[in-house]
Design a protein around this nucleic acid. Structure first.
Lengths: 168, 168
DNA sequence: GCCCAACGACTGCCTGAGCAACTATAACCG
DNA sequence: CGGTTATAGTTGCTCAGGCAGTCGTTGGGC
């Protein structure tokens, strides 16, 4: 084993990305906990809240998150139990059901979001001068576009919206 | 809920970071599987292989990875069962034990690493011109240094090495 | 209209990981 | 020294999440 590979700039580059991500994620998680939501629950609330009618079919929700459909079933179970979401039958397709954010869910999101934005500002965007930040985001965007894992992609930016308008 | 928050540049910035990370991670995972290691196992092999004697105490290994000590116990259990690692008692402190990479473990790492580097090149570093990449890494480094989650930090770059020289 | 393939959601089973409790050892301190 | 405290590692319990299988529903081909 050639010891020099550990200082390979490629390894270092990935290390930086992973550590920056891990560090931010840890900060986020700590703040989520203050408001009684997990990271996935926060993501679910965000995706639903930005969708028309504050709702999404289970499958679509799975496609927009890091979860499988069975994972979505369970997260929605928990969040429904906690009153943040409810299921709604799709009138035009009896196989489908929607997850809809309840008023309590929206309120929870309202409570959580400002602190979340502040943490981003404090530890991420605010750490860099505007042009450095822009350069970095440009790089990230190009990497993101390259690896675009299909479903998860287009998530936080505009969704591709290439799906046909909601049938319900 | 003010709908415009979803287009907040801070949300977008985090989204890019998260998606780039997720996309790369997915590529890595797929390649690891070709060689029969998981992401954590690969990380463990890397950390050990770059450590003096190809070994680390369990606690130190936990500090350098994303795992708790109990998580390390179990990963090492699995990898020892698979012949990639073995435990070695610490002669000077009977509470401690080392995880040592076996020849088979080093070989596995040798098999996996080239493909790993190639994937980094293909999907990450090679996607950007050198100066763009440098700018991005500069930004990442500053974010990483800011959020530095203590233990996990200093991982892929030089470890801070502020720990006293190994007592064994 | 009928059948069969595709689809959406859910469930059983399993794995991986964290927390807290526990044991053994070490270190400190009177 | 003897007792208290801290540390290293392991284990029991729990939970989140994925995969594969199931059930009901839909839609297309004939």
């Amino acid at each position: 084993m050639d010891e020099t590979v550990f200082d390979d700039p490629r390894i270092t580059a990935v290390g930086l990305l992973v550590e920056a991500h891990a560090g931010l994620t840890a900060r986020f998680t700590a703040q989520y906990e203050e408001h009684g939501v997990s990271a996935v629950e926060f993501e679910v609330l965000m995706r639903l809240a930005r969708s028309p009618g504050n709702q999404l079919r289970m499958t679509d929700l799975a496609a927009q998150t890091s979860l499988s459909t069975s994972g979505v079933t369970r997260v929605v179970d928990r969040m429904e139990r906690d009153g943040l979401l409810r299921r709604r039958a799709c009138p035009s397709d009896r196989r489908s059901s929607y997850a809809v954010v309840t008023p309590a869910g929206m309120q929870r999101l309202d409570e959580t979001l400002p602190g979340h934005l502040q943490i981003i500002e404090q530890w991420f965007t605010g750490q860099l001068e505007p042009d450095t930040l822009a350069a970095m985001l440009d790089g990230l965007r190009r990497v993101r576009d390259a690896v675009h894992p299909g479903a998860t992609a287009g998530s936080t930016d505009q969704a591709p919206t290439d799906e046909p308008p909601s049938p319900c």
